[in-house]
Design a protein around this nucleic acid. Sequence first.
RNA 1: GUGGUUGUAGCUCAGUUGGUUAGAGCGCCGGAUUGUGGUUCCGGAGGUCGGCGGUUCGAGACCGCUCUUCCACCCCA
Length: 454
Amino acid sequence: MAVQKPSVPKGTRDFSPVEMVKRNFIFDTIKEVFKRFGYLPIETPSMENLTTLMGKYGEEGDKLLFKVLNSGDYLSKVKSDLTKAESTKLTSEISEKGLRYDLTVPFARFVVQHLNEITFPFKRYQIQPVWRADRPQKGRYREFYQCDVDVIGSNSLLNEVELIQIIDQIFQKLNVNAEIKLNNRKILLGIAETINAKDKFIEFTVALDKWDKIGSEGVKNELIKSGFSESQIEDIFSVINVIDQDNKHKILFLKRMLIDSETGLRGIEEVETVLNYFETLPLNIELELDLTLARGLNYYTGAIFEVKAKDVAMGSLCGGGRYDDLTGVFGLKDVSGIGISFGADRIYDVMEQLNIFPNEIVASTKVMFVNFGEKEEKYCLPLLQKLRENGINSEIFPDSAKIKKQMTYANNKNIPFVILVGESEMEKGILTLKDMINGDQSEMIFEELLQKLS
RNA sequence: GUGGUUGUAGCUCAGUUGGUUAGAGCGCCGGAUUGUGGUUCCGGAGGUCGGCGGUUCGAGACCGCUCUUCCACCCCA
């Protein structure tokens, strides 16, 4: 067989040790905050039954699902005429499993399936990869990690408040300058009602969502294409006119505009309640009511969120919202949930671009023993063990290679301290400690070393 | 999925209208310095020019297909 060039599939990546350390820094930070707010972890399989996945993400979403071919002689059970090109029909006959597309739908399935073991409200977090057969671009991968927090079985707006606090804390800890955009699907529904376009709600939200990308003319053209009338468009644009106002003015305006829409008014009230909590709660991150925020996922019914980096052009770093009936399709009615999802890979890309990963995280070893030979090894090993017992990450170079090579190794690995114990040190019962940052070298006994490093 | 774009050493990139043995910087390895890295000096290794096929006396360069990258649309973390 010809030698093949090693490669990974489109949109997937390997992660080097340095990259992993940085990625883990993000995961650990996120996890820490999730736990701080009382969320517990779960995991679900990479694969779900296609029946669980299909139809939850809209028509486009179905196309982006990675489907797993049935095992064995999968063609033998096919009833379709194979001479006809009917991919969609054939797919359902040769594939019954698919890779998960997000963590929210598997979570909904989990909740219904384990109903008897769960106490509500159920607060869970989940950090796992998801797969989408999308065309890759920067910040867009076919395999990427989502970090979800959801609470299901509670209607309280306190959950909305809590998720905003979680977003605030995570981005503060990561030192990423970001802003939260908040909206409410009920408000959007109210607007659609008021302008008599309830039947074109999806078209309306899709067009509106593009506002910051294609501008007013672009949105107008989209709306015309979708069949909106002049007067409807005019009404929609009166909403957009308050785009630069502060949150309070937007709410005032909406209250007047949506006076006849019960749903719309409820949406406004929800938003107002949430924002009011933050009158007295300090928030680091900017929280803006963005009336053009819509989000494509149609299972959202209340609050919707999106987080964007302020210093870097990148898709959203975090998104989510309230869904009133996601468990409905699995047979559990009237259970409301709300959740958000952090895109770890995008957060990584942003932090890498801004070069804001703390330097310390790359150094995992604190001190390295230079290896001088067999006799010295035997002398050092017990000392090494004591360091480790005291929680100090330490290693000894495995070969008695040239000192130069060993020092280079320590230097490249960002190890801040090196210990040299050769014949003369052994005789005197001391160690030579070298500080790799400033090059200083000093002799000391083991107890002093322990004190210095702990 | 539609349209476009990219690929040359481990990394970042040169490479003339198709013409001898494909270059640089950084990194890597070795030496100057046999107990000292990060600075300096000297030397060295490393390439199926993304892959397959074609045109040509001759292809890194031209053509076809394919894979990959990035971009726009779509959608989204």
